[in-house]
């Protein structure tokens, strides 16, 4: 089992959930942390399309009222063990949308958040550092 978990820490697969984000963080995530220039694949990461393949889940956005149920459902579909990373200030405080009638956040009222990467949007280097921190937590859980 120890051998398996040692191998598992080198293979964290990433999945993105957009919880009503303004797309700023998504653009940073998808087009900046994913493109060849900032290579997360060297950490063993791989973006996967299905939540069922994921190990580390990256959540962006302030959790709007409309999207809350869907986010929780997708989150439940990620098999254990998993690590949650909140990208941007919105998931934690609501960011510029805080105190809005349409916001159900902060997200840690519903989901356990392990790492937060603040910024509006955060720099790609910061996102990669957040992923590296999440991998340390993932290594303990896997």
């Amino acid at each position: 089992m120890d051998f398996l978990s040692k191998a598992a820490r080198k293979s964290p697969w990433l999945y993105r959930i957009n919880a009503g984000s303004c797309n700023g963080c998504d653009v940073e995530l998808a087009t900046t942390a994913c493109i060849p220039r900032y290579d997360v694949e060297r950490l063993g990461c791989q973006y996967c399309g299905s939540p069922k393949h994921a190990d580390i889940v990256l959540i962006t956005g302030p959790l709007t009222a409309r999207v809350k149920d869907k986010v929780l459902r997708v989150y439940d579909e990620i098999p254990d063990p998993k690590v949650t990373v909140a990208i941007g200030v919105c998931p934690i405080s609501g960011g510029v949308f805080r105190e809005s009638y349409a916001i159900e956040g902060p997200i840690d009222r519903y989901l356990p958040v392990d790492v937060n990467v603040p910024g509006c949007p955060p720099r790609p280097q910061a996102i990669i550092e957040g992923i590296a921190k999440a991998i340390e937590i993932w290594a303990k859980r896997a």
Binding site: L4, A8, K10, S11, W13, D39, R42, G44, A142
Partner: peptide
């Protein structure tokens, strides 16, 4: 592919890690 895109890329044994990792995950 990583080298063709001018990045470092995963270690050569990455598929082995991925496979062992999947054996630890829950089946849904």
């Amino acid at each position: 592919i990583a080298r063709l895109q001018r990045r470092i890329g995963p270690p050569l044994v990455q598929p082995f890690y991925d496979l062992l990792k999947l054996m630890r995950k829950r089946t849904l």
